[in-house]
Write a protein that binds this DNA or RNA. Structure first.
Lengths: 182, 182
DNA sequence: GTATGTATACCGTCCGGACGGTATAGTAAA
DNA sequence: TTTACTATACCGTCCGGACGGTATACATAC
């Protein structure tokens, strides 16, 4: 065997379980069964459950990064604007991304070691490229507004319908481009 | 005994455990021991763990409501402005509130039944009193910005120092009062 | 070209412990 | 007599993780 996709198959299974049944049902046995790999094989690839969760977070962060790149390419003609890129990326996230993010973030709330993997890249971006600007309050408000909406969606707290969400993102993007009216 | 504070003593113990050790260590046995109440007594008051969590969420929401009332009183001379109240309330939350909110929210992420208790009141306020206004985008951006910052603090994602946080809240409050410059 | 060794990639089973919940017998105040 | 417990003993389940074994592939040596 030795198929190189075993790890990915395991991660796929783990994601599916979280999305379908919630992180509470994410057990090693369940992942093994779902990925049609024995528990021993699972442990071979991911020695501990924490290692598995770390890999799940890693893949999610990669996906975010891909979406950011995609957004950056789309916005290429415009002057470089990381705040704009970040808002577009958040807008692009799918419902599956929401649920997965929420579940994994929830897990990290009780496992501080994992939180590091979650936030490290994010922090650097957040801080250096977006926050350290002349108009700090303006950038911060726009970024936090997008993030706040994202969190609402993540935890199913938002009551916005698609139209309202669209309007809100439009307003945020306009302001991130330098628009003045709020 | 029959002291009326038994329930509160139990909830105090449960909160302390979550704050000190994380929700992962919130077991019925631990709560009983910490509150110097027997496990039987604990089960007498909270027949299931879910009932206990629900009560914890209820108390947290009550505390938020109290802080809102407090903020409303402080702002009384000004024209009624629920958006302003909400932002001030979020600013008032302590670190203990952060951690408790984060932990309980994390728990609800995997127990949808609990999420209802968490969001019901919040949703009504959010929707009816703040979002249904003429300048929808403006209100939404300010509210989501405050909430986004709050979430960052909850999950230890924010890199803002106290000065920056103060500046940001000042800007949000100014805008919520009708200020124009962003 | 066969024997030997070694690393990789698993399989299947088992175990210790924890946890939520139950049961029961008794106590003490109101 | 009901309410509000205490104290203790269990039960069934589940879970993370350890362990011993197996199959394959490849390299090296003789």
């Amino acid at each position: 065997m030795g198929r190189p996709s075993s790890k990915n198959a395991i991660l796929d299974a783990a994601e599916a379980i979280v999305l379908e049944s919630g992180a509470a049902h994410l057990t090693l046995d369940a992942v093994a069964e779902r990925s049609t790999i024995s528990k021993g094989g699972l442990i071979y690839h991911f020695p501990t459950k924490e290692a598995l969760l770390e890999a799940m977070i890693g893949r999610l962060m990669e996906r975010h990064e891909q979406l950011r790149d995609q957004a950056r390419r789309e916005l290429a003609p415009e002057p470089s604007n990381e705040l704009l890129v970040e808002i577009r990326m958040l807008q692009k996230l799918s419902e599956a991304d929401y649920h997965l993010s929420a579940s994994l973030l929830a897990v990290t709330a009780n496992q501080p070691e994992l939180a590091k993997a979650f936030h490290e890249k994010y922090r650097r971006r957040f801080h250096d490229e977006i926050m350290n600007q002349e108009r700090f309050e303006r950038s911060a408000i726009l970024l936090f507004a997008a993030v706040g909406l994202h969190f609402h969606d993540m935890f199913n707290m938002s009551l916005l319908n698609d139209e309202q969400r669209g309007m809100l993102y439009a307003a945020l993007l306009r302001l991130a481009r330098g628009g003045d009216a709020l």
